[in-house]
Design a protein around this nucleic acid. Structure first.
Lengths: 348, 348
DNA sequence: CTGAAAGCGCTTACAG
DNA sequence: CTGAAAGCGCTTACAG
């Protein structure tokens, strides 16, 4: 059975396609009587509007494309959720692609979404080189906004936060707690800009406090719990192991925590542990995890706002939202046993 | 600047639109020379294929619609991931909608996706009444498959598991451990079919072992950690509190665990705790959580397979995949203190 | 191997 | 308030 089209409805109602189209989109332009008749017929024939044809004719789309590293990390789910909620308010749906932190995949997805003629694109975090691609997309009139970062340019819109500062503040907090040997379990910062910024934040905090950087204290790995666990085991087996560990993702922190417990150590008595993201489970860990709260949901919402500003202004109105992160102090960090009371060495 | 179309390319290459179209989709049909020329021109003009127009002309789509309860629960992320991975193999992208366990929203999304002319629809879990809607969609020639359930009909395709059996087996396990008072923290089983099936599984296990059902032991709540925590506190404050609690979602179990620890109790010494789903963190909890493993990822993959069977057969070939769940025994369950050695009462 | 033509299902400026 | 017509960017059977 062929699908019912606007043409069929028009014929049955004795009007033109144009009138049916108006009945659908601008009912107030149609005479009451005609309108009723058309609506009745649409009902009875189970007419389903063809948004694909409509989009083509109108030369616009009501789909936005979204590229995230992976849907499996719950912190991104919050951003996705924020995006979907907001987009829905505008009557838009979301096409989601996972880049898996892979550059090629990211490029492929961008092209794919461009082919689908999405109304706009939101990219959650950039791989190396993505920024240039985003800029070229914007030039090709694909409104695009970046989130989870603060791209250093005034030509692209974004809703992000300062990864450097966020990592700096947590490291600084640990140092003020008198930790001198602070381990770092972090994602692939050689590949991911965002992770690199955090790494630099950690470095800068050490430096500002006159603490020398020890490469042995750094574990670079992927973002899974098992990675966090293995990383922590590695740090714990150092001859001079850290008194505090900053796991730059709550997922990594959870893995790290289980490694610490396996060793029979206590958090924070024997070792302090800090996370990053503040996902749901952080507050439910034992002990509750001190972490950096990322406004993932709000970022998603603002990214959509920035996107629609772009869309509605013909890519003229660049919006740049810089969101704050918060240090969430819970119970997983304390002063190091040996250093209690001792004051740390500084440069200045 | 107007977008470059197939028409522009054709003119520049001195061929017809048809030939350009062939150069894109069936290059082997085009003479080597012509092909090269066309490709060069497409490159130099940054031609981007318009998939929307293509879909309309071809009367097919390469987007599948996916409806899930919420992207915020990580267990669904796995299914989404499985779906996306598999769909991608077929060259399809995924439009995702969250129903938030709400019937109206689910209906709205189905209609929306139908308007977008998706090639097919995957519904992760049904609300009450959805089954009928799915059946009617299939009749309207929207290939649709259900996942996370085993709809009781031979007219719809699905890739699911037996929620009743899964809950039964965990309850049975706890009873064999000699627990007589088993608390249940469960999602809104009055609204969600899936949850109701699990509730019935719990009930059936009790009954088969001759244990009387005590409504005080049941906590119905939403699927968040805080709900799990509050639920556990409620159970713990009962005059005759349970010796084991089955939280029918690992997320609820994690909340429950933190409540138990707050009370200064030990798992499994003082109380046993079991979960459901086996999401990533279950193995990393302290103690590692005994739970029911749901093959979320595989289900997603098979759902896509079933969907493409449907699509390619013109909705003729119904596929019904029944997946197994596994009891994952870790360390959060043991025999109840008081009942050690005592044998439980049975009917038969 | 290639082209002309009809068509996919809708929209919209124009005219009445 | 309504219709005729051109158009959105592609595809595909048909003919050569």
């Amino acid at each position: 059975m062929k699908k019912t089209t606007i043409q069929d409805i028009a014929k049955a109602a004795g009007v033109s396609k144009a009138t049916v189209s108006r009945a659908i989109h601008s009912p107030q332009l149609v005479k009451r009587n005609t309108l009723n008749r058309i609506q009745l017929i649409m009902e009875s024939r189970d007419y389903v509007y063809d948004a694909v044809a409509g989009d083509l004719a109108r030369k616009k789309s009501s789909i936005i494309g979204l590229i995230i590293p992976t849907i499996k990390n719950s912190i991104f789910s919050s951003t996705v959720y924020g995006i979907q909620q907001k987009a829905e308010e505008y009557g838009y749906t979301t096409l989601i692609g996972n880049s898996n932190y892979d550059n090629e995949t990211e490029i492929r997805l961008m092209k794919l979404f461009q082919q689908r003629r999405v109304a706009g694109l939101i990219v959650t975090g950039l791989s190396a080189g993505s920024l240039k691609r985003i800029e070229s997309l914007v030039q090709q009139e694909v409104p695009s906004v970046v989130t989870w970062e603060l791209p250093d340019t005034d030509t692209v819109s974004f809703a992000g936060f300062d990864n450097f500062k966020a990592a700096y503040s947590m490291t600084d907090y640990l140092i003020r707690l008198k930790h001198l040997r602070i381990g770092l379990i972090i994602g692939p910062y050689t590949k991911i800009d965002r992770a690199r910024k955090r790494f630099e934040g950690y470095l800068a905090a050490l430096k500002n406090h006159g603490i020398v950087y020890d490469p042995d204290l750094i574990v670079e790995c992927n973002y899974t719990m098992i990675d966090g666990k293995e990383g922590m085991h590695r740090l714990l087996s150092l001859t001079e192991s850290p008194t505090a560990v900053f796991a730059v993702s709550d997922v990594l922190a959870m893995g790290a925590l289980s490694a610490i417990k396996e060793k029979g150590l206590n958090v924070p008595k024997d070792i302090s542990l800090a996370g990053f993201d503040d996902i749901e489970f952080a507050a439910f860990l034992d002990p509750p995890l001190t972490t950096v709260k990322i406004p993932a949901y709000e970022m998603g919402q603002l990214a959509v706002k920035a996107l629609f500003d772009l869309i509605n202004s013909g890519s003229k109105s660049i919006k740049q939202y810089r969101l704050n992160t918060d240090l969430i102090i819970r119970e997983s960090c304390g002063e190091p046993e040996g250093n209690k009371g001792k004051s740390i060495q500084r440069n200045e």
